[in-house]
Computed example of a mutant assay.
Amino acid sequence: MTTYLPKDITDGLVAARKMALRKASRLRVEADGSSHKVLRRWENGFSVDAADAPHLRGLVELFDGATFIASCLIIASAEEEGEMQYEFKRSTAARDHAPLDFQQDEDAPFALLGKS
């Protein structure tokens, strides 16, 4: 028995895998006013559909649905099986509060009680 598959079947399997990844992922990346669906994400990067996205480079913003996740500086690293892969040069996670500009004491009070 042989493991050879005709090209049209292989292309169909790759397209079906990309469609499943696209439906399962809520992640998207925004660059220069355009938004692109993220197929996969790992610790040091992410991938998008090569046919969908231009050759991205520089500062982009990563979102999970409508929630801002991170601001990232990226470079294109490889194109494999119809996916364009990007690596993070820098990734800064989004915060829901401003960073403190002073050091807090460990035993500092966290609330004041009024006189009763």
Rank of each mutant, 00 (worst) to 15 (best):
14 V>D: 06
40 R>N: 15
104 Q>F: 14
55 H>R: 14
52 D>H: 06
72 C>H: 05
71 S>Y: 10
95 R>S: 15
86 Y>F: 14
44 N>P: 00
86 Y>I: 02
23 K>W: 08
89 K>E: 10
18 K>Q: 09
77 S>N: 11
36 H>E: 00
47 S>M: 03
56 L>W: 07
89 K>G: 01
24 A>S: 13
93 A>Y: 04
28 R>A: 07
85 Q>D: 02
24 A>K: 13
95 R>K: 10
70 A>M: 04
92 T>K: 02
87 E>T: 12
76 A>K: 15
13 L>S: 03
72 C>M: 07
40 R>E: 15
96 D>C: 04
95 R>M: 11
22 R>T: 10
78 A>E: 15
46 F>C: 04
101 D>E: 14
39 L>P: 04
32 D>S: 07
33 G>H: 01
15 A>C: 00
20 A>P: 01
48 V>R: 01
77 S>C: 13
106 E>L: 15
98 A>R: 12
38 V>D: 04
103 Q>T: 14
103 Q>H: 11
80 E>F: 00
52 D>F: 06
76 A>W: 11
16 A>L: 08
14 V>R: 10
41 R>I: 10
45 G>L: 07
93 A>H: 10
71 S>G: 09
57 R>S: 15
55 H>P: 11
56 L>G: 05
79 E>H: 02
53 A>F: 01
60 V>L: 14
64 D>I: 10
81 E>V: 02
16 A>T: 01
49 D>W: 03
16 A>W: 00
44 N>D: 14
62 L>S: 11
61 E>P: 03
46 F>K: 04
97 H>M: 08
58 G>A: 06
87 E>Q: 13
70 A>H: 05
69 I>T: 10
18 K>C: 02
96 D>P: 00
16 A>D: 07
106 E>R: 14
65 G>H: 12
64 D>L: 14
99 P>A: 14
31 A>H: 09
99 P>W: 05
28 R>F: 04
21 L>E: 09
78 A>F: 07
84 M>K: 05
46 F>P: 03
67 T>G: 13
78 A>L: 08
97 H>P: 00
62 L>V: 15
51 A>T: 06
35 S>V: 08
105 D>I: 08
105 D>G: 15
77 S>P: 05
78 A>W: 03
105 D>F: 13
50 A>P: 03
103 Q>D: 13
21 L>F: 04
13 L>D: 02
75 I>K: 12
79 E>T: 13
76 A>H: 15
33 G>Y: 01
14 V>E: 07
